[in-house]
């Protein structure tokens, strides 16, 4: 599957107040980044369920990004602190079943960090592109397609 034309699908789950707004800022500042990312806006990183990440892979994502406000900046006081603790556990679980840090990414991007958003997206898009399609997970999907 080392197709040179491979373009990764990146799914991003972002909080409304920081990262989504930071991505808006990247837009208003006309910064450019790779177009592989598809973003889903939720109010807070606290809302981001590990199920979302699983479902993204089931839907064919090659990489998943979870991003929100920096610690202490949460619009809802502590949503990102709870999220962080959840991610610490979930990330280790994913690693243990063979889904490594080059498939799932986490970042803090504030409303003023349009540039950081651009860098994060470019960086993870490159990482996932180099890594190639998430064949492992897509093989799990395959069987499902056969069975309908």
């Amino acid at each position: 599957m080392s197709d040179s034309k491979f373009e990764p699908k990146i799914m991003a789950f972002v909080c409304n107040w920081c990262t989504y707004t930071g991505a808006d800022l990247a837009g208003t500042s006309r910064m450019k980044y790779q177009s592989n990312v598809r973003m889903i806006r939720v109010p807070c990183t606290g809302r981001i369920d590990p199920m979302f990440i699983i479902k993204a892979f089931e839907s064919g994502a090659d990489g998943v990004l979870v991003s929100g406000c920096h610690p202490g900046d949460c619009h809802y006081t502590a949503g990102n602190f709870h999220a962080r603790r959840r991610w610490i556990l979930f990330r280790q679980l994913l690693k243990f079943v063979g889904i490594d840090d080059d498939r799932v990414f986490f970042s803090w991007v504030s409303a003023s960090e349009g540039k950081k958003w651009v860098d994060v997206i470019n960086e993870i898009t490159d990482t996932v592109r180099t890594k190639g399609p998430f064949v492992n997970y897509q093989n799990l999907n395959k069987e499902f397609t056969l069975n309908g």
């Binding site: 939720v42 807070c44 590990p50 979302f52 709870h82």
Partner: peptide, 26 residues
């Protein structure tokens, strides 16, 4: 305030955030 942290935390998804519920995001 509608942050939805409860929704993601609930193991059985018995609390959901209106407007950003599980079905919508799924």
């Amino acid at each position: 305030q509608g942050c939805g942290t409860c929704n993601a935390t609930c193991p059985s998804k018995s609390i959901e955030l209106i407007g950003f519920n599980d079905e919508q995001i799924y």
